[in-house]
Design a protein around this nucleic acid. Sequence first.
DNA 1: TACCTCGTACAACTGGAAGT
DNA 2: ACTTCCAGTTGTACGAGGTA
Length: 591
Amino acid sequence: PLRLMAENPPEVLEVRGEVFMSRQGFVRLNEQRADGGEEPFANARNATAGTLKLLDARIVARRPLEVIFYAQGEIEGIELHTQQELLLFLRQAGLRTQDWLRTASDFDGITAALQELQQNKNRFSYDIDGAVIKVDSFAQRELLGQTARAPSWAKAYKYEPERAETLLKEITVQVGRTGVLTPVAELEPVFLAGSTISRATLHNQDEITRKDIRIGDTVLIEKAGEVIPAVVSVRKEKRPADSEPFDFVSHLGNRCPSCGGEIVRDPQFVAWRCPNLQCPAQSMRRIEYFAARNALDISSLGSVVAEALLENGLVREPLDLFSLTLEQLAVLNLGTEDEPRMFGAKNGAKLLAALERARTMPLASWLQAMGIPEVGSATAYQIGRTHRDLAEVANSPKLKGIVSVMTAQENGLPASAASQAPADSAFGELFSWKKEEVAVTSPEELVSLGLLKPGSRKDGAAYYVTTVIGPKTAQAVLDFFAGEIGQGWLKKLAELEIDPQGGETAAATTETTATLSGKTFVLTGTLASMDRETAAAKIRALGGNVASSVSKNTTWLVAGENTGARKTEKATELGVAVIDEKQFLEMLGEN
DNA sequence: TACCTCGTACAACTGGAAGT
DNA sequence: ACTTCCAGTTGTACGAGGTA
């Protein structure tokens, strides 16, 4: 509805839901497209996703989109305590909700509801692949919290996925960023649950051995979660008589498919690896990873562009990107010698602009971009939050503190000994650095930084558990910077005058999600790293509020490029703090 | 046991280059 | 200047392996 139909509508109501196409709507849309001579869409899910990305709202309006709401964002002026209350309210307000809803108070109740749903799955105007089981009470949800990926108070239950049979023509091997060799099944293309599958990862040799997958086999595949293709099993009765067990080491002749160097396997790990750091495939992946969205977000630099830059000798490692020129990029050939395809001046300018932005990205983004072993987004965020710059991380008393406290505990010593033990004692020998040389942060301070949590032990002695960064990860980071690669990064970054800044700006409490709760932002100008809608969404996600004009209630005015005069003027007048994009990103805890 | 990292796949959109 | 063609990027989801 254009107006909420509630009697006393709340002042602020942010609702979340899912947009979809009904089976019927999708069929009709494809009929129309066929009449108009257009290619039909492959499936409703992607057609819907594509429609939502269209820039022309008039076309969007003609597509048969439907929406069902099921969750709340920010709400002011009404108190809702449970999912059931929320759905009832949404329905009364005229917002469509899922009408099939069951409540259960125990496991049997849940399985009964799941069974009932499966028997009735044809009742719906759209395809379903399962159900979502949620904790009803919002108070209990808060207690359960969430992980980096998903809330802990909701679980998806999926029914059996559709399967298909096809021929495994070949097994190829890909080289990852860290040199890990991953076998991939090349399949005879087969249509399954809305898309054509031609490849599927086989993960590693152990997996191939366990399922006894061979070249020439007829295999059963399914799409895990309706998206990712996977080989489930082999139809052994259809196996050719002369087939042999697959062993990818002998298949590769013990050589890396990219650089031809010898491959190795640390008996401790499952994967075979190419140990050559100069291996072209690895360099390419490292550059890709460096540019990835959750690292330095250098748009228009993906795998193909990275490979072309490497092949043309323009770039050998990620930081070489900063010496690229527009002239070089404009004529960069993405095709072959016979059929050249230019990267172009416009793309080139875009890439250079993204690189310029990358210079001022926060410490956490850089830490992730550097591709330090064990360091992904969550770890990079924690390190970035607790350190000022790379120099501090490289020789970090905090990371050393984590290692020494945890090592001490493992050796049955009190944690407090870790920061006190003299270097010449037996205890001091446990560590790769000497106590006199560097400061090691005390356990108490690590607790106040949120890197350690005090645990309880029966005898009452001090005891600590790590939060996100454990001793292995901490040591991996220290080793990285102590080694040749890390030193190389530091040297090159200094030459380029890039000095990523970390530390906490506003987010003192990082574990709670509502770090911006009670704060009101106003956006002005253009932000370099995201559009305004994205920025607003991020603020709201952290519990903050976004208003359209500056008032005395505004906490911060976020100023990008080409700011609106009226807003900055009013901010000065009312004494509202103005922050730039960098500070804003730090508040969001972006990495 | 929980969850983070890493690698992988798919399909539509987007935008540059080529064609007219 | 406009249209067509093409493929790179993007966003999302998941499993396995590893760490906490």
